[in-house]
Design a binder for these strands. Structure first.
Lengths: 277, 277
DNA sequence: CTTGACTTTAACGCTGCGTCAAGGTTTATG
DNA sequence: CATAAACCTTGACGCAGCGTTAAAGTCAAG
């Protein structure tokens, strides 16, 4: 019969760990003195403890371990738990590897250029959202202006605009002088189906599908500089083994008339997917 | 000016996150109403928040992020932090990969054999420890018996035996009929230098060097079955890309006279190292 | 003015123990 | 045998990053 301190030494673990395992019910002492509460362990318990430590080394939680060690568990259930753990470890590793790639990219850039341009690119997941919009072909880099005009021409009392002004661009050659835009507003679920502008054009409601991987960057200032955002995003996407998967968006978080363009805040988003390795 | 709820929507984060970031000082709202406590954010803050989220995606802690965003930080310091993070990620990945390997091995075994023999193998780190011992060449599988005899022949009042009875085996052919053993007791730091047994033999004190990677398994029962432990350990070591690096040990946690050998509890330990890949 | 939609601060929860702290037990020593 | 040293007990906080109620104050629409 060992007391916790002795047993912790032969087992090479801390006494606190033994108490904790007793408390949560994964490993109880062979005997507990009813009056003093002292825990007494025996050498015969060592293999069991070693089992538990080995399972812990697999990354299993104490609760999972308790289940695995219960009498009434089938071999098949154990295998199921291990397969689950395997899958989780694989996912965790790929996440960590991705982070590592991000860090490495950033380090390379910092060593090339003192000022870091590639600073605020994030991955997001977007849910499906109603979108009240209008599709038109207009000169490049003017989607915001159209939105601004629409914003003006809109009978504003007819709806409560909750989401942001957003534009989707179709067509994949960004060097062209014109572009095919769908401009409008992200809406709450109970939005109107159609809105007629004061100049007669109509906005129609549709559901934008969810996107589970969007890269996004935010650009502050006049739209003349917006191409910097695009090139940075493009570099990032290539650097990290992604490719563009669908239709890009601009979100106008702060939309001013052309003469105050320096205060604009514009977000650029692209849905992406990993290139198969 | 957005209130938290609105800002959380345009930024695609939860309101709780914004409050938390305010609380810990990584991202404060542009304005806070002094009387109501309401937080008000502006669109111009979006790039900053995106920066923070991007840094978070690297796996940095909020405290690190706060430091990186402070004005008074040099480019060199930032690179240092990133290099540190890179190193930590690499280590974390290799740990996870190792766990994964453990899980896979276990799954393979479970699919071959319903009863899992390879159940309680753990990696340990041992500190340097004083060892009061005696070296002899004796028949295989009898180290425990010697220890038992020594135990009897020892003038027990002379020392407080705190550690376990332990044996080290020299020579690397385990199939041989004799083996070179060093048997003795792990001792506390203030132990006696020499002890003379009643049969005239002497135990001498020396310091066992620390081992930072020991594989260990615990076997219960008569020593006749002990080879099972050895073979299991050997398989495990090979399976996981390790090799034996030094002198193996047996630790006798429960040492009985030969006629009660079925109650013995014996641990087998080998120092190992990863084979370079 | 009344809702209802939002906001605030406060606090627990989660994981697996490490780390005191206050107060009994056991054991070694004088 | 008295007493101190060494060990044991339960209890509780801490950590990281928010998610999740909960109670109570604000704000905007009708």
């Amino acid at each position: 019969m060992f007391k916790v301190g002795e047993f912790s030494k032969v087992a090479q673990v801390s006494a606190r760990l033994l108490r904790h395992y007793d408390e949560v019910g994964v490993f109880a002492p062979a005997h507990t003195d009813a009056t003093t509460g002292y825990r007494y362990y025996t050498a015969e318990q060592l293999p069991r403890l070693n089992q538990i430590l080995a399972l812990r080394d697999l990354g299993l939680s104490l609760e999972q371990i308790r289940n695995m060690l219960s009498e009434s568990i089938t071999n098949e259930e154990i295998r199921g738990m291990l397969r689950l753990q395997k899958a989780q470890l694989e996912q965790s590793i790929s996440e960590q590897a991705f982070r590592l790639q991000l860090v490495e990219t950033r380090l390379r850039y910092l060593e090339q250029q003192p000022a870091s341009p590639l600073y605020d690119i994030a991955l997001k997941t977007l849910p499906a959202q109603p979108f009240l919009s209008l599709r038109e072909t207009v000169p490049m880099f003017t989607a915001g202006s159209i939105l601004f005009m629409i914003h003006q021409a809109m009978p504003r009392h007819q709806f409560k605009q909750r989401g942001a002004c957003t534009a989707l661009f179709y067509g994949d050659n960004f060097d062209d002088q014109v572009c095919d835009w769908e401009v409008g507003f992200l809406m709450p679920d109970d939005a109107l189906k159609t809105v007629t502008l004061s100049d007669g054009r109509e906005l129609h409601l549709r559901i934008l599908p969810p996107e589970n991987q969007m890269v996004s960057t935010i650009y502050s200032g006049r739209w003349l500089g917006l191409h910097l955002g695009y090139s940075t995003l493009g570099e990032w996407i290539a650097q990290h083994g992604y490719q563009i998967k669908g239709i890009g968006r601009e979100v106008f978080h702060q939309l001013h008339p052309p003469e105050h363009g320096e205060n604009n805040v514009t977000e650029i988003q692209f849905p992406v997917e990993k290139i198969a390795v």
